[in-house]
């Protein structure tokens, strides 16, 4: 008769412990979430917003106390200055060393918001845009308050001097 022997008892206990540890591990892993939308979903938006804010801040900083800022100059002229604004902003946004040619895929749309003094409502008109929002690109918006004491014919303002909001919507095209 072959004996049911009692060797390898330690191995049995080890096997059992290992099994328990594996089950517990599986439990904890399953309890952990699997998130499809990554936690860094908005990091790119945050960066884009910062780039945009910095560009507008640079544009809104005058070279010295006695003159207005570049941005004030553009806005004070209605939509007439779109081209020079476009060139400056594009230049700021694509700042590079020149050593490599870089792809600049930032597109934007700039609008001006003003208060209608008769109704206290806020009106808007488009200052200009670079690229089109064609495919639901996720965008961010940045804005600056601008002082304007001119009443250019291309703008529908009804009082002067006044304060405007210059808002730029940025996206990667």
């Amino acid at each position: 008769m072959v004996m049911a022997d009692d060797r390898a008892q330690l191995y049995t206990i080890e096997g059992l412990t290992a099994g328990l540890i594996m089950i517990a591990t599986a439990y904890f892993v399953l309890n952990t979430g699997f998130m499809y939308a990554p936690g860094d979903a908005h990091i790119a938006d945050m960066q884009l917003e910062q780039i945009g804010t910095d560009a507008l801040l640079m544009m809104d900083t005058p070279v010295n106390d006695s003159v207005g800022s570049e941005l004030e100059g553009y806005v004070n002229d209605g939509t007439g200055q779109w081209d020079s604004f476009n060139t400056t902003l594009n230049n700021y946004l694509r700042m590079n060393t020149g050593a490599t040619s870089m792809v600049n895929n930032i597109r934007y749309n700039a609008s001006i918001y003003y208060r209608k003094s008769s109704t206290d409502e806020v009106g808007a008109f488009e200052f200009g845009h670079f690229g089109d929002l064609v495919a639901h690109e996720p965008a961010v918006s940045v804005s600056r308050l601008v002082y304007c004491d001119n009443n250019p014919p291309s703008a529908p303002y009804d009082h002067s001097p006044q304060e405007l909001i210059f808002e730029v919507i940025l996206w990667r095209g």
């Binding site: 939308a37 929002l133 639901h136 690109e137 996720p138 965008a139 961010v140 918006s141 808002e167 919507i169």
Partner: peptide, 8 residues
């Protein structure tokens, strides 16, 4: 933030 499109 007055943005026209967002996808989730």
């Amino acid at each position: 933030s007055n943005v026209p499109y967002r996808d989730v």
